[in-house]
Amino acid sequence: MIAYLEGKILSKEADGIILLAGHIGYEILLDTITLSMCMEKSQANETIALYIYYHVTDRQPKPVLIGFLTPDDKDFFQLFITVAAIGPMKAIKALTRPVPQVARAIEDRDTVFLSQLTGIGKRTAEKIVATLNGKVLAFAATQSPEPDPGPTEPTDFLPEEKQLMVSQVTEVLTEQLGHSGSSARRMIKQALEKNPGISSPEDLFDEIYQETR
C-alpha cells in the first residue's frame, strides 16, 4: 500500500495532480487548499511530498490515492470519514477550509460554518459534531508542517515518574476515545506544557478537555 510519495507535478487535474515519482505518474486527489499549495511549490520548482490515504473498496475497485501535506491533515481526514454518510470522496471535496478551522468549528459545535463546506448540509453538519466533538481539539491549534514525531515523543521531555501517567492516558485516548496516535501525543504534550504540575491521569484528562466544556 502506498503511504508516502515525493516527486514533481507532471500535470494538474480538475481535482488533483499527477505526481511524477520514480518515473511513475501517480494520479492523486487533493482538497482545494492542498492543491493550491502544491501548485505554488511546483511553480517554485520544489519537490512535492505527500502523505497518502489509499482508498479501495468492493464498490470502488480502482485504487484512489488522496494526498496530504502533513500527517496531521491525514489523521484529521481519517477521523472525518468516520462520520456516517461521509466517505473519502465526499470528505476530500468538503475540506475547502483549513483543517484547524474545521476542527475548531467541530469543537465549538458551529454547524453553520460546517454546513458551508462543499456537500455538507445542516443534517450532515450535525452528524459531524455529534461524532467528532471532543475528538479533534488537537487539530484546532495551528499545525506545524513538520513530520509526525515518533511514538515515544510525548515522554522524551518528561521525568520518569510521569511517563507511566502519560502512557495510561495515551492508551485511553487511542484505544477507547478514537484519537489517532499523533493527535493523542500532541494533546498530552500541549496539556503538560500548559500545566507542568499535572501529576495524575485524571488531572491530565481535565487539562486536555477543559476547552471542550
Rank of each mutant, 00 (worst) to 15 (best):
M89C: 04
M89Q: 14
M89A: 08
K90Q: 07
K90M: 12
K90E: 01
K90T: 07
K90G: 13
A91Q: 10
A91R: 12
A91M: 12
I92E: 06
I92W: 03
I92V: 15
K93R: 15
K93N: 07
K93H: 14
K93D: 05
A94K: 13
A94D: 10
A94G: 12
L95P: 15
T96N: 12
T96K: 15
R97W: 11
R97P: 03
R97N: 15
R97L: 11
R97C: 12
P98V: 06
P98E: 13
P98N: 13
V99R: 08
V99A: 13
P100E: 14
P100Q: 11
Q101N: 13
Q101E: 15
V102S: 03
V102G: 01
V102A: 06
V102W: 06
A103L: 10
A103V: 15
A103G: 09
A103M: 10
A103P: 06
R104A: 15
R104P: 00
R104H: 02
A105C: 08
A105L: 04
A105T: 04
I106T: 01
E107Q: 14
E107H: 12
D108G: 05
D108K: 05
D108F: 10
D108A: 12
D108H: 11
D108Q: 08
R109Y: 05
R109G: 13
R109D: 11
R109H: 07
D110F: 05
D110I: 09
T111Q: 08
T111D: 06
T111V: 10
T111K: 06
T111R: 07
T111M: 05
V112S: 06
V112A: 09
F113S: 13
F113T: 02
F113W: 06
F113Y: 08
F113V: 07
L114A: 05
L114F: 11
S115N: 10
S115G: 13
S115L: 02
S115D: 04
S115C: 09
Q116G: 15
Q116E: 04
L117E: 04
L117V: 15
T118S: 11
T118P: 12
T118Y: 14
T118N: 08
G119L: 09
G119F: 04
G119K: 14
I120P: 00
I120E: 02
G121Q: 01
G121S: 02
K122Q: 05
K122H: 10
K122M: 06
K122F: 01
R123N: 06
R123A: 06
R123C: 02
T124L: 08
T124S: 08
T124H: 05
A125M: 02
E126F: 00
E126Y: 00
K127H: 04
K127Y: 01
K127C: 01
K127L: 02
I128L: 00
I128P: 00
V129T: 01
V129P: 00
V129F: 00
A130V: 02
A130G: 08
A130Q: 07
T131P: 03
T131G: 01
T131K: 03
